[in-house]
């Protein structure tokens, strides 16, 4: 049967490989089960969310849940808040990081190494440790329960500076020199030569910053009092989920919606995300 008869290579490893692959698929399926169950439940009529024996699909696909969720909780507001907070925070972080990354890599100035070491040191401080003093600070500023309190405190994290510095160190010096010959000053060189070159790195930083704002939970929980007006999605989900008499199908629909933006980013930009994680430890939990 086997063509040569010298050795029985071919068939046996291939079968083993196929079995292994099937097992891998089963593991992946088991892993996905909670997410599949979430999507399935989000489409069930509420009366069928808990049944014994459990069913995957309800008697009908109730797409209406996805519109009902917007009247069940102020979900449009949560999405809007989430997008606003994440977008503004990301814009600030990427801008200051591009500038400081450039300063730490291509410009020479007194105190550069000391300041850079301080930047490094701040990376060791976890957000959870900062929450209490940050809250006291927000009290002093009168920022408790405001949008800016959700954005500003975390817009200056240092990681972006390292990412950008790392990038700018790889740009050939000749490009600066050429720009200088053309009469460009420091600012023009930065804006017209460096920033366009750094666009992929800036995008990676932007994506991770956006996601970390989008998913943030502890700080909104601490700083937001008026959940209906100022909550971002995780806090809003939590607040309504904590109530008695959960509408599970609607909460699941809300969860699905909250995951969509990051899942879409993940699918579209996976290569860049992987690079960001692997080269710089971005996005760690």
């Amino acid at each position: 049967m086997s063509s040569g008869g010298t050795r029985t290579t071919g068939a046996a490893p291939r079968v083993r490989h196929a079995i292994g692959y099937v097992i891998l698929c089963l593991i992946a399926l088991a892993f996905m089960a909670p997410l599949i169950y979430m999507v399935a439940t989000s489409l069930k009529p509420e009366s069928e969310t808990f049944t014994t024996p459990p069913t995957l699909w309800g008697s009908a696909l109730r797409w209406q849940n996805y519109t009902d969720v917007f009247s069940y909780l102020p979900f449009a507001r949560f999405i809007l808040n989430g997008v606003l907070v994440a977008a503004v925070g990301t814009a600030i972080n990427v801008t200051v990081a591009a500038l400081s990354g450039y300063a730490f890599s291509r410009l020479r100035w007194r105190g550069r190494n000391v300041v850079f070491l301080l930047f490094l040191a701040t990376l060791m401080i976890p957000q959870d440790v900062l929450v209490i003093p940050m809250y006291v600070m927000m009290q002093d500023l009168g920022w408790v329960d405001t949008v800016q309190a959700l954005i500003i405190p975390w817009a200056f994290t240092a990681l972006g500076a390292f990412l950008l510095r790392q990038f700018f160190l790889t740009v050939p010096q000749e490009l600066d020199d050429a720009a200088r010959v053309d009469g460009a000053g420091t600012v023009r060189t930065f804006l017209n030569v460096m920033v366009p070159l750094a666009r992929p790195t800036l995008a990676v930083l932007a994506v991770f910053t956006f996601i970390s704002y989008w998913n943030s939970f502890l700080w909104p929980l601490v700083i937001v009092n008026d959940v209906n007006a100022r909550a971002t999605i995780p806090l809003g989900l939590q607040a309504f989920f904590g109530q008695q008499g959960n509408e599970w199908s609607l909460v699941m629909a809300a969860s699905v919606i909250s995951m969509l933006p990051t899942v879409i980013i993940l699918v579209l930009l996976q290569k860049h995300l992987v690079r960001g994680i692997v080269t710089s430890g971005l996005g760690g939990r």
């Binding site: 998913n215 939970f217 999605i233 969860s255 995951m259 996005g283």
Partner: peptide, 8 residues
């Protein structure tokens, strides 16, 4: 890992 932990 990348979606809101609260939702998960």
């Amino acid at each position: 890992t990348i979606t809101p932990l609260v939702a998960n």
